[in-house]
Design a protein around this nucleic acid. Structure first.
Lengths: 198, 198, 198, 198
DNA sequence: GATTAATCGAGACGGTACGTCCAGTCTTGGA
DNA sequence: TCCAAGACTGGACGTACCGTCTCGATTAATC
């Protein structure tokens, strides 16, 4: 009982080429300099083909995000059973990403897209698998009692990711070792344990 | 011993009108829809007058920020002597700002500008006096011993402001009362002490 | 064996509207005040559509000339068999055109365009069908022996048209009856014959 | 009974520099590309100094013409007593000027200026001393009976100069020897005499 | 010799048009 | 029916000059 009408069917090749081109052009030129025309040319596609399927530049980015074509090379939080260690071991290299110009640039472009478009904004936490895994890790911690029941996982994630984004926006350098201090600050539960100096 | 050359002098009236118009147009139409032409028309000024003094849209925003024409209606942290209380009392209404569409919109526009332009990014912490005062309050807290000497004030500010910005970007609603939980999480040092009921 | 590529085809409607608007604007405002922007607005067309097909203001005029949209209301030389009579009967009303402000203005605008642009210059003799017909009439005269074989038709045409243009440029009034004197002067061959009183 | 008010007097140095710069820029860049700004810069003068004394670009050209800063290197008609010889000897090298790109360019620029501005038009016959001398020579010829009393000197001059201008506008090459044919055509009186072939 | 007003250079001003780029829509012909 | 190609209207870009204006410095007639 296929509902397909007569005529050619949507070209998967074109769809993929467009999303790839979107990701490539975004990484290369940034949000502001991103043009549908450029994407069409890069993908070897006519402009109307893009407009037929996506209503806006931002919708393209949102889809490219979902497609995983735009993920940052961020590490994933592990689950060793020790929340503090896991978070520090994740946050430290994550913040170090701010030392990589390409990563900060891509971050800023995604933030710009999120700022302009609600759909991209809603999907901002999918910009990297790290965010999802981080939320899961915190969930588990809460279940295990590593985290107070009153803690808002959503807000903690926002604070950690937000700190990273703020560094990218402010073009601020990262001073190694600060990750531990932030995690300690965030995780009041950890207090009694020994703190790594600096 | 001024080196002033001969010739007509820069018009202060035009300068102010342009910055005001920039702020008004940004708040009204957003970063993407912001046009120099529109600003010029709004300010009653010729386009070349803008280009003579500012190299780009972003530079205009950066200056409008400095001029204080773009401040969010954010509360300022107080200093009652109790850091936790002060932070919660500041963070709660600040996060509540995310319920105001105009404030979140302006926040996103500023973030977009910061994402596109390094100068705006560097001045992002001046977007609101709140950021400055917050950093000062934390400094005082560190001096008083309310905060561990190893704590990175910069990173804590990034995390708190970042959390706010993330909510604005994600168009996430704020559930009242979470502020306290975040502050508690951030301020591990405070833990042992009695918590003033919010 | 057409080499036509795929894609939309040039809009004839736009082409005609642009040339018409060019002629109208030139006649109305003159060469100096002629703006591409004005033509585009008048023709209900985007500026890029004009720039896509014509490299300059002058090229537009040249095409409008070819299209016949800019012809002066000049009379045509007849062929009664008597060259002198034909020329006088043509030159007299032609020079009288200098009494019509619109005609002299259009003449000057065309001259200005020809002065600025080589293509318009090359087509200057097509500004009016009169020039072509005049050259033909002189050719016939030469074949018939009404004109010396050594006479340069090109130069005689230049002199006659040039005299007209000079009056237009000098804003000089025309004293009726002088046409006969000029023709007589030009047509030395006619001399011996009786001169019909004009 | 001097009406002079107190204060500095008009600077002759500036006046001359401006007219010189006008002539230089016109010859160099043409009418269309001629800018007051460029003239001011070239003359080392402020724009208002120009606007104070001349109402328009064309007025500048008109004055530069009068000042003799823009004369074509045209020969002058002589008076050997033989009108035909004198005219041929003048017209031949004059038409040959059309072989010199600089001369034709300057001619076209002056024509453009005359087309746009009535004052320049009225002074067009002063563009070169040749025009004046030519009219004088024809006057003398008429007095001597070399020219018919009914001949319109004004129109003959227009025809001869007009022929030259037409060549310049049409970017037409000049075929040597045609001058004699034109003069013969113009001077019906000369008819009986031998004509140089072609 | 001091006063004073017109002129000078410089250059900022509000504008207009430039010629270009891209947006988003529409049209055409091939697959 | 969808696709590529590309022409279309339209709007903003950043630049070049326009003609006016406002400066401080200079200059020369008048006091």
């Amino acid at each position: 009982m296929t509902e397909r009408r007569r005529g050619a069917v949507r070209s998967e090749k074109a769809r993929v080429a467009i999303l790839r081109a979107t990701a490539a052009q975004l990484a290369e030129r940034g949000w502001d300099q991103l043009t549908i025309e450029g994407i069409a040319a890069d993908a070897g596609v006519g402009k109307p083909t893009i407009y037929r399927w996506w209503p806006s530049k931002s919708a393209l980015i949102a889809d490219a995000l979902l497609e995983g074509a735009l993920a940052l090379p961020a590490p994933l939080p592990a689950d060793t059973g020790d929340l503090r260690t896991d978070l520090v071991d994740w946050l430290e290299p994550t913040l170090r990403l701010t030392e990589d110009p390409e990563s900060t640039a891509l971050t800023r472009y995604l933030v710009a897209a999120a700022a302009e478009d609600a759909v991209v904004g809603h999907r901002l936490d999918e910009a990297s698998p790290a965010t999802r895994v981080l939320a899961e890790r915190l969930s588990i911690a809460k279940a295990r009692g590593e985290l107070a029941p009153s803690a808002s996982i959503e807000l903690i994630v926002d604070a950690l990711i937000g700190a990273f984004i703020m560094r990218a926006l402010r073009r601020a350098s990262y001073e190694p070792g600060q990750a531990a201090a932030l995690v300690d600050a965030v995780l009041s539960e950890q207090q009694g344990s020994a703190r790594a100096p600096d």
